[in-house]
Amino acid sequence: MKPDAEARAAAAEVRAIYREWEQRPLERSCTGRGDCCRFRLTGRTPFLTRGEALVAALAWRAAGRTSVPETADGACPFLKAGRCQIYEGRPFGCRTHFCDAAGGPASRKEVRDLIQRLEEIDTRLGGRGGVNLPGAVAAAMNPRRPG
């Protein structure tokens, strides 16, 4: 996957949104335990916009990976030995801590403006809303180009 100029610009916009989130003065205390990454146990799987999936796919490729593995236990495919292998490229839902140990999910009021910007990027990239994490990143890793 070699991103074109539009994809590189979208990835830069998504990363800027992530940085803006990190600079907000909200109480978060992620301990990196990985409990929230066990989707089958939590009943929550993050849904990614195309821009988020692109950033995650770029991080996964940078780690030398070429495909998204399936997990038998229903955990995030990027979780290994209890740690996120794409931590810097993790999606917005992972950053807003659905984990109870990290303070629970951010309120809609706290993230609405950032979600709207992610949705605008999704629309520009031809997306139609969030897709579950494994499927979204797998699609971003192997985009089908017309022609």
Score class of each variant (00 low, 15 high):
M1Q: 08
M1W: 09
M1A: 11
K2Q: 08
D4P: 06
A5D: 14
E6D: 13
E6C: 06
R8T: 14
R8W: 12
A11R: 06
A12L: 15
E13P: 08
E13R: 15
I17R: 05
I17Y: 03
Y18G: 00
Y18W: 14
R19D: 15
E20T: 14
W21A: 12
E22T: 13
Q23D: 15
Q23H: 12
Q23N: 08
R24C: 06
P25D: 14
L26E: 08
R28S: 08
R28Y: 01
R28H: 14
R28C: 15
R33M: 10
G34N: 10
D35R: 10
F39Y: 15
R40H: 12
T42H: 01
G43M: 14
R44V: 15
T45A: 10
F47L: 13
L48P: 02
T49I: 02
T49D: 04
R50N: 03
R50M: 10
G51Q: 11
A53R: 01
A53Q: 02
L54G: 04
L54A: 03
L54K: 04
V55F: 02
A57M: 01
W60Q: 00
R61C: 07
R61N: 02
G64R: 02
G64D: 08
R65V: 00
S67M: 09
S67P: 03
S67F: 09
S67E: 15
P69C: 09
A72P: 06
D73A: 11
D73G: 05
C76D: 09
C76F: 00
F78W: 02
L79H: 06
K80Q: 13
G82L: 09
R83A: 15
R83E: 14
R83V: 12
C84G: 04
C84W: 00
Q85S: 01
Y87W: 11
Y87T: 04
Y87F: 15
E88W: 13
E88S: 13
G89Q: 10
G89C: 11
G89A: 15
F92Q: 12
T96N: 03
D100G: 15
A102Q: 04
G104N: 07
P105C: 07
P105Y: 01
A106E: 02
A106Y: 03
S107A: 06
R108H: 06
R108M: 05
K109F: 05
K109L: 12
E110S: 09
E110Q: 13
V111Y: 00
R112W: 08
D113Y: 05
L114F: 11
I115A: 04
I115D: 04
Q116L: 14
R117I: 10
E119K: 05
E120R: 07
D122H: 04
D122L: 05
T123L: 14
T123S: 05
R124S: 10
L125Y: 09
G126V: 14
L133M: 10
L133R: 00
P134H: 11
G135S: 07
V137D: 02
V137H: 03
A138G: 03
A139D: 13
A139L: 06
A140D: 08
A140C: 09
R145L: 11
P146K: 07
P146M: 03
P146Y: 03
P146V: 12
G147T: 06
G147P: 02
